[in-house]
Design a protein around this nucleic acid. Structure first.
Lengths: 241, 241
DNA sequence: GTTGATTGGGCTAGTCTTAGACCATTGATG
DNA sequence: CATCAATGGTCTAAGACTAGCCCAATCAAC
């Protein structure tokens, strides 16, 4: 933790890869987080290229790669587009160990710590801010969505619920950061089997989070989120052992 | 908060600017956060270019721009290098209003919320992790550094103290994020006059943060950080009014 | 002094990326 | 069945960026 180590915090690579690679990563994030639901399509190329601040050529290369990898189905002509075909793989311990091995234990620990910090921070902020009625309705709606979800939609709606908390703070930076944190562990979470016991447990914890936020109790919100995420992390570890 | 709004969380520009602009921004961050202290020099160009993952040509353009802007003094030959000459401007309400006007009230609010969330999250995580003796020593050392600092070094050592909390969690992602959050408000904080009353108040709050972390009390840590940052934000608002 | 290691300064050829124009396909609509 | 708007597919010229090389300056050590 000397001075030179601290420097590395800021003097890291300016770019995570070339434009093509970064674009693939970003689209994959939107797909895997379920922000574009299976069957839906991405915005038109011309529009998306502007949104992402890249050229159409580069965007098309990225879409082509994702299409080849089976994440997208691209169709020409009016009413065509790049349709999401991705469905998370079936939960499986083999996938999980593979994914963990690929990212490394250090990065896994980093990602879990990061997610814990930013999601707790978001919940705390939202609880402190005493959200308006409209925001409360959204939060309750997202919770109900998860509880009513079938197994096919559960992960996607769970993600939506978690991200809603950060979005409702009104801070785009915080929302973006929470989305980033979640996407770093999403493949791992997908590898955990969805047992009814665990879903029930999660539902109770989700409820506690919402209750604390609606009650304007930042400490209770922090604790509820921490407990929920620690629980998920424990499941991960157990499934890894 | 409909689906398309949520998409914007992820489908934002892939790159914040060209390589030159992003490099300037990154170096400016290291300088303004005091990670390279005034009088110290940046790593040699060849080394730094590799660290930042860019070509030496681009790095040199960035260094040239910062040199022209008065942040760096570049000297050739052995024992030469790019020496930091930056000193934060004198606190001044005019500077502050200018800076706020430049970034916009929405972005300011975003940045303050973001910082509150991630720094509280980091403190909570560190308190939960029951840091080892070595880490405790570092934390206490940083706190002492701030308390012993003269007015010239205060801001730099205050920054170092705050960032140490995130660094000590052992999560590079979290450390990077806290550094980013701090740098988004550093110009504004620099515009606040350093009155003894405020420094004394900050010292008490810093002590409370360290005590809570060393006691392994995440709720107390969260509260102490929240109180400290809210206090700073209040000073900002008061100085703006 | 002379030397040599270290550092910034500068050039070139090649690759990545972009902007913009134009072509090809699709399918709802009249 | 002809039309046409929306969308993906393709090409080109210009600019951004890189890797690698060599030059110039500085100064501690001998």
């Amino acid at each position: 933790m000397d001075e030179s180590a601290r420097l590395m915090t800021v003097l890291r690579p300016v770019r995570a890869g070339n434009a093509f690679e970064e674009t693939v990563e970003r689209l994959l994030q939107a797909i895997k987080l379920g922000l574009v639901a299976p069957g839906d399509k991405l915005p038109p190329e011309r529009e998306l290229a502007v949104t992402l601040g890249i050229s159409r050529v580069t965007l098309r290369e990225a879409i082509r790669a994702l299409s080849d990898a089976g994440y997208l189905d691209v169709r020409r002509g009016r009413y065509g587009g790049a349709f999401v075909t991705y469905a998370p793989p079936e939960p499986d311990a083999g996938h999980l160990r593979e994914a963990v091995k690929e990212m490394g234990m250090a990065d896994l620990s980093d990602a879990l710590t990061f997610r814990l910090a930013v999601e707790c921070g978001a919940a705390q902020v939202l609880a402190t801010s005493r959200p308006a009625e409209q925001q409360r309705v959204v939060l309750v709606r997202r919770l109900a969505d998860v509880n009513e979800a079938g197994l096919d939609d559960y992960r996607r709606l769970d993600t939506a619920f978690h991200l809603s908390i950060a979005e409702l703070t009104g801070s785009p930076l915080l929302a973006t950061t929470c989305a980033d944190a979640r996407s770093r562990v999403s493949d791992l979470l997908n590898a955990i089997p969805m047992l009814q016991v665990n879903l029930d447990h999660a539902a109770v914890q989700h409820q506690a989070i919402v209750d604390a936020i609606l009650a304007g109790d930042p400490d209770a919100a922090r604790q509820a989120v921490a407990e929920h995420l620690e629980g998920t992390a424990a499941l991960l570890r157990a499934f890894l052992a």
